[in-house]
Design a protein around this nucleic acid. Structure first.
Lengths: 269, 269
DNA sequence: AATTCTATTTTCATACAATGAAATATAACA
DNA sequence: TGTTATATTTCATTGTATGAAAATAGAATT
């Protein structure tokens, strides 16, 4: 159910890290799978003595970053929500993109997503549900999805350093979600090359069998890809995807508009 | 614009707190007002040497709890969003309440909120926009609102320990947002008593002049008030509020249903 | 381009804060 | 009531977080 995090949760010891903080953050990450845990389970999970774990939890708890339920099990607390709101509201990209995404959604009437790459996985920043029916798509704001089998993921990968992509997938072999999922690294690499060439990505049910999707990259002022947007919907309404030029064009156009608002100067203009 | 936090951000030193963690969390709280800050500003704000602040930020940054922009200013990072998603999805209250709230919204067609009290302020857990028009209400999920002048706030206060309420408002005198806002503590106390008696609260434009609102308390299995829900809309459609019994009854009924799903046994049943 | 100035990174010695082991308290269960 | 299992608390010790200060990078000014 809950997507596994691809990156190891072993402490990424960037030279200057403060040890207690590493440990405390690991507690939060452990709890971020949603399962409430007892002190013991947590102390085991992060490999610390119960006393230490207790104190860390006490500190986190006093700021409501974690909370204890009636049966002494810990889970994430209300303050997480408050921090997210702050992040969310002060996020330039999202602020700039939102009105454009809304216009796009209203035009195509399908679900529109905004996402970034994080640890070679897709993280959704925004989701505008389509106007046809409700709740088909499993994505959530703040949630993750694999990158090798989603339109958003593939666009974002396409503009990563190829050697980093390769390194990642050698360590985390692409898992097959449907019979169309690309599981061969060299096939994936060729696909990414093609995406760079045409400037958009397609997903023909590679993650969820019945879902089709078009995704386009968003550039910032430095010309770096910082995010991507996508239009997704059921196969019935989207096919034939490869020649659905209006959809592809609309996705690319909106992405370009957002990019320009972020300070990107396209070569043609 | 950004609501000030009522509680002091001086370290609440619960006997077992770990100092570095206190400090690091304070950084997050400082940044949670949305203003990007430089290392210097932060180190000043939390009263630590630049070296220490640097290391704390480095650690937080390596987990993307904070991020640095092109001009070396720090703000909250993507991981905040991910933690919030986890909190959000594993939150029992919200999960139980959501379908009931949706039913209520569809029935009354006005905006429905779910909220809890935190530091004597209202924090929104859920917002279901009304079906009439868009974006009238300024509330956000994860956002705060004052308690003395909102329906949600007043219900929640009504079931707090009266001496705590008193102590809080003596320290933080109720601010007037409109000419109807209750700014006198004894008037507020009488209002809360009345709310306890009738079991719901009304807001007649005490926070936002044109908004009217009905709010009802949600109880858990122990009989404690853990949250509240509200129906709010423009004065035009809601007035006369005091005798709008169908609206009041619907709010109370939904609140009771949710309470029962949380294990609350009402005396009458 | 050269220079100054400011802000961030890095080093380092030191104090004291975080640590785990073990003792105690508390809750859950029989 | 006794018996476990779990959560708190205490305490001595070590090692880590700390600020001062030096080095570096980055703007800004000339």
């Amino acid at each position: 159910m809950t997507p596994r995090r691809a990156q190891s949760n072993a402490t990424p010891n960037n030279r200057y890290n403060v040890r207690v903080l590493d440990r405390a953050i690991n507690i939060l990450l452990v709890l971020s799978d949603g399962t409430p845990r007892t002190l013991q389970e947590i102390s085991e999970a992060i490999g610390l003595s119960p006393s230490t774990t207790f104190r860390l939890l006490a500190t986190l708890g006093c700021y409501r970053l974690v909370q204890k339920d009636a049966l002494n099990r810990y889970s994430l607390g209300l303050t997480c929500l408050e921090l997210a709101r702050a992040y969310y509201e002060s996020n330039d990209l999202r602020k700039v993109a939102l009105p454009e995404l809304e216009a796009l959604r209203d035009e195509v009437k399908e679900t529109v997503h905004l996402a970034v790459l994080e640890g070679m996985e897709v993280v959704y920043l925004e989701k505008l549900p389509g106007l046809h029916a409700i709740g088909l798509m499993g994505s959530r704001v703040g949630g993750r999805a694999p990158s090798h089998c989603t339109g958003l993921g593939k666009v974002l990968l396409a503009y990563c350093k190829p050697e980093e992509v390769k390194a990642f997938f050698l360590k985390n072999p692409p898992r097959a979600y449907t019979e169309r999922t690309i599981t061969d690294l060299s096939v994936l690499e060729r696909e990414l090359e093609e995406i760079r060439r045409v400037g958009y990505a397609l997903d023909r049910g590679e993650h969820e069998g019945e879902v089709r999707c078009v995704a386009a990259p968003i550039f910032d002022m430095r010309g770096e890809v910082v995010a991507a947007l996508s239009i997704s919907g059921p196969a019935g309404r989207m096919e034939p995807l490869e020649t659905n030029w209006t959809l592809i064009e609309k996705a690319c156009k909106t992405a370009r508009t957002i990019s320009e608002k972020l300070g990107f100067r396209s070569k043609s203009s």
